[in-house]
Nucleic acid binder design. Structure first.
Lengths: 144, 144
DNA sequence: CGTGGCATTAGAATAGTTCTAAAATTGATC
DNA sequence: GATCAATTTTAGAACTATTCTAATGCCACG
C-alpha cells in the first residue's frame, strides 16, 4: 500500500488493523475471512463462512476456515457458540448476550434480555478456568 | 409376574412403573435402560450407557440406546444436555440446574448455584416453543 | 537467494449420531 | 395357542461436522 489515503479507501485496511491489534499475523486468507466476518454482525457456521468466502471468488480451504475461526476465537475476535448437535457458530458480536437456537431452521437468534447474572470465577470446579459460558435456549417451530 | 408381593421384591418393578407413569410402553430394553439410569442420579452419554447396559450381561444395540434416550427425554424422564463438540448427555436429574463441562476431561459437573432467573415463555421468538434451556459453562484444566 | 518456520491445502480419518431395511417382539383377535 | 398388524429392535451403512496428516507454498530475515 502506497500511502495513508490509499489505506483508508482500501476495504481490507480495517481488517488488517483489527487482526494486528490482536497480534494475529495477517495473511490473505485471514484478511478475507475477517473482512467477511466483520462486514456485519452475524452468526456463521464454519461451513457457511466457507461458502461465503469462496463464492466471493477466492478459494480458501475448509481446514483453513476452521483453523482461522478457531484462532480468531482464541484471540477474542469472535465468540464461539455451541448449540449441540455437532454445530458450532461464530458470532462477530463478542459482547455479553445469549441466544435462541431454532432446531427446525438451524437459525441462531440473539436474545435481547440479559438473563444471566454475573458469573463468579471463584465458583468454578477446582483447578479449572472458564472458557465460555453459553446460555442457549433451544426452540422449535410451533406447528411441528 | 405372579402377585403384588413378587412385584415389590422385583428390582425391575420400579422401572416399569416409572415408564408406565409417563405413558411409555415397556419393553425389555427400555426396562434395562431405565433401571440403569435411575439406579443413581447421573450424567451419561449414549455411548457410556450403551457400555453400561452391555457389560451388565444384556445386549442392546446402539440404535436402541439412542432411540430410548431420545424417547425418555421427550417424555420428560431425563434431561438432554448439549455441551457442543458433538456430545450429548442425558441427566436423570430433571430438576432445574445447570452444568460445568470440562473440555479436557469430558466430565459434566452439576452447578450448585442457581444462576438463571425465571425464563419467560412470552419472550421466545415468534412462532416457536421452548425445547430446553441449557446454561453450560465450559471450563478447562488450569495447567494446560 | 536460501533457509526456517508458520500457513495452507486436499483429502483421509474420526466421532457422534441417524438412517435403513430386515428380523423380532408385542398385544389383540380369532 | 396361531395369526396378524403394529411397533421395536437390530446390524451395519450412511451422514455430518470436525480434526488430522503430510505435502506444498509463502514470507521474513540473514
Amino acid at each position: 500500500m502506497s500511502d495513508f489515503g490509499d489505506k483508508l479507501q482500501n476495504p481490507t485496511y480495517e481488517a488488517d488493523s483489527i487482526l494486528a491489534d490482536k497480534g494475529i499475523f495477517v495473511t490473505n486468507q485471514r484478511r478475507l475471512i475477517a473482512t467477511i466476518l466483520f462486514a456485519r454482525n452475524q452468526h456463521v457456521t464454519p461451513e457457511q463462512l466457507h461458502a461465503l468466502v469462496n463464492q466471493s471468488g477466492a478459494r480458501v480451504s475448509k481446514a483453513t476456515v476452521y483453523n482461522t475461526l478457531g484462532l480468531f476465537a482464541e484471540k477474542g475476535l469472535v465468540r464461539e457458540i455451541h448449540v449441540g448437535n455437532a454445530k458450532t457458530f461464530y458470532d462477530s458480536n463478542t459482547s455479553r448476550h445469549h441466544h435462541f437456537y431454532n432446531v427446525d431452521t438451524g437459525d441462531l437468534i440473539d436474545m435481547k434480555q440479559r438473563l444471566v447474572p454475573l458469573f463468579l470465577h471463584t465458583d468454578l470446579p477446582e483447578g479449572t478456568v472458564m472458557e465460555t459460558a453459553d446460555l442457549v435456549v433451544r426452540v422449535r417451530n410451533k406447528a411441528s
